[in-house]
């Protein structure tokens, strides 16, 4: 049911781990739903120098977070904010319909990490990043 790309990212996830001195950390999802994504970013001169993730969830949750890290690493914050769940799905060669929500989480986890980065800089992230809906278990479409 999964594409080769999904299985590749699930089997060999890129950028797994933590960044101890991260400049921004974002966590989305909740245990009740069965998936949590935690994204760490290291920013230098507006560029995401390093990114690491940890994910609790199904195969596609792990694959979407893995590919999302690849898609933003080395890019500017502005570019990372452009990352859409659709782009994540396309990069993975598609996801089963009931797994699309994993790609939404991947997008949100990047945004949450950037929001945290701005927050630490003393900048209100809301006008830049927008609001990231808190997961109340309603995200499973």
């Amino acid at each position: 049911m999964y594409t080769q790309q999904v299985m590749d990212h699930f089997t060999h996830p890129r950028n797994v781990g933590e960044i101890p001195d991260a400049d921004g950390i974002g966590e989305v999802g909740n245990a009740k739903c069965g998936d949590i994504m935690k994204m760490y970013i290291k920013v230098k001169d507006g560029v995401i120098e390093d990114v690491k993730f940890k994910t609790y969830g199904c195969g596609s949750a792990i694959a979407t977070s893995s590919i999302a890290t690849e898609m933003i690493k080395g890019h500017t914050i502005e570019e990372a904010l452009e990352l859409s769940n659709k782009a994540v799905v396309e990069a993975l060669g598609g996801l089963p319909t009931h797994k699309i929500h994993c790609s939404v989480l991947a997008e949100q986890s990047v945004k949450a990490a950037i929001a945290d980065y701005y927050h630490r800089q003393g900048i209100d992230p809301a006008p830049i990043v927008g609001t990231i809906p808190a997961c109340e278990g309603e995200c499973h479409l």
Partner: peptide, 30 residues
């Protein structure tokens, strides 16, 4: 605790073990 069933099944499958899980992701429901 701390792992999700579908991911576990996929990895077991790669090791040649067919099993099942009661996680939401495998039941296809919420």
């Amino acid at each position: 605790e701390g792992v999700e069933g579908e991911a576990l099944l996929l990895m077991l499958d790669q090791a040649g073990i067919c099993a099942s899980s009661g996680s939401a992701c495998t039941s296809g429901s919420l």
